[in-house]
Design a protein around this nucleic acid. Structure first.
Lengths: 223, 223
DNA sequence: AAGTGAAAGTTATAACTTTCACAAGCAGGG
DNA sequence: CCCTGCTTGTGAAAGTTATAACTTTCACTT
């Protein structure tokens, strides 16, 4: 990779994905150049930080003009490693798991649900879209055979810990955890990322009442 | 409210929700006291920041002992405003919307989906659990009548902007946006919170490759 | 009833992030 | 071919956050 700086925080990465989305939205129009101001208006961040984030990875812009949407998309995809298709699996084919597997955004980002796993005998053998559901007994065998690195976990919360514990960490390096179970950032050298939908609602609910400014990491006032 | 400090960042709020979840998980055992170290081990944060976060809102702990799980839960729920039931609505009763409405974590956090809205005539009149699906034409009428403050948006991405634009901002103050559409933090005085499931996968994918440390806001190394 | 250990609360500092302000430089027009 | 306007890229300053180290206080023990 061609970028010089040696340390990038997760916050920066999150913003890069935002920029990518903003470009996607904007490029539906015929504009071929976007300025940091343009992007800032879509995603609500300040132009200065957008410029700084992008400059960190190289001078992608043209002074006086802005950023070429096509080039910038390519660069961002490259930084984020989204250029090649990554096979991932789904564990738990309930309502949420099914919805996740069908979520169109994954395809855009080049993630492919190659298989799903569940305990329910009625589900085993059926499909979610093109993704076949297998018995969870075959999970680690499949992981090994297909060298699966990323797993999406959408089982009932009380089953989550047991499954994570058993996952073959020789192959699995990342877990996207949609259960209400909380895991520390790393388990057996696997990177775990917790997403709790209710949490997001809790945050928004608090922010609604207390937020005064409109920036991302809001400063909030209480009496 | 009894807390003295006047500024709280969103990051703190996110951590508070984590603590709440950690307590929930831990309190299934018979422990009545939890230390900052206990909590740190479940959620992967450092004990010092947990103590600092909690101390900011008052001295809830007992020196030498830890935090009383019951008291701390009550305090955290109080800070986050989760003690009373909040009626919310769902817009878009597709796969994702349906899964969200069924997500058990919302009930725990006292959020109640009082109604859902969709354009599909076949869905209108049917139910997701106890939540009835109405025509989207009746959306603003319903918002006004029921004084809805929080809306969960799970429609196809290309419909998102149109719906947000039309929402009655006299009542709606918070939008939880599950579409791939990106909104700035505030629109017409409504606080918008974007959740893109693919984004989380993008972040984890990057972190997997590059993360070296195990803390939340990871420091990442590239060559 | 004093002593001890353990963990909360607190403070100071280091690390990191964001913001501002300005220099640099490209494109288009005259 | 230079001049003008505009936006990037950057370096320093401001602001913010996390961390470690320290002090306090409680409960339990003897």
């Amino acid at each position: 990779m061609e970028f010089h700086n040696d340390k990038i925080s997760e916050a920066v990465i999150r913003r890069l994905t935002d920029y990518l989305r903003c470009i996607r939205i904007a490029s539906s129009s015929d504009k071929t150049l976007l300025t940091s101001k343009d992007i800032s208006e879509t995603c609500g961040l300040k132009p200065s930080i957008i410029r700084k984030d992008l400059a960190q990875f190289g001078a992608y812009g043209v002074k006086g003009q802005g950023y070429n949407t096509h080039d910038l998309t390519r660069h961002l995809n490259n930084i984020l490693g989204l250029n090649n298709i990554k096979n991932i699996i789904l564990i738990g084919a309930g309502h949420l798991g099914t919805a996740i597997a069908r979520y169109p955004g994954f395809i855009t980002a080049n993630f492919n649900f190659i298989a799903a796993f569940d305990t329910d005998p009625e589900k085993i053998g059926s499909h979610i879209g093109h993704t076949k559901i297998y018995s969870i007994d075959k999970l680690n065998k499949y992981i090994k055979e297909q060298k699966i690195e990323i797993v999406v976990l959408a089982v009932p919360s009380d089953e989550a810990a047991g499954i994570v514990e058993k996952l073959d960490s020789n192959y699995v390096k990342g877990i996207l955890n949609f259960t209400s179970m909380v895991f520390p950032g790393r388990i057996h050298d696997m990177y775990v990322h917790n997403i709790d939908l209710a949490k997001e609602l809790e945050v928004i609910s608090f922010c609604m009442k207390n937020c005064l400014t409109q920036k991302r990491d809001d400063q909030i006032n209480n009496e």
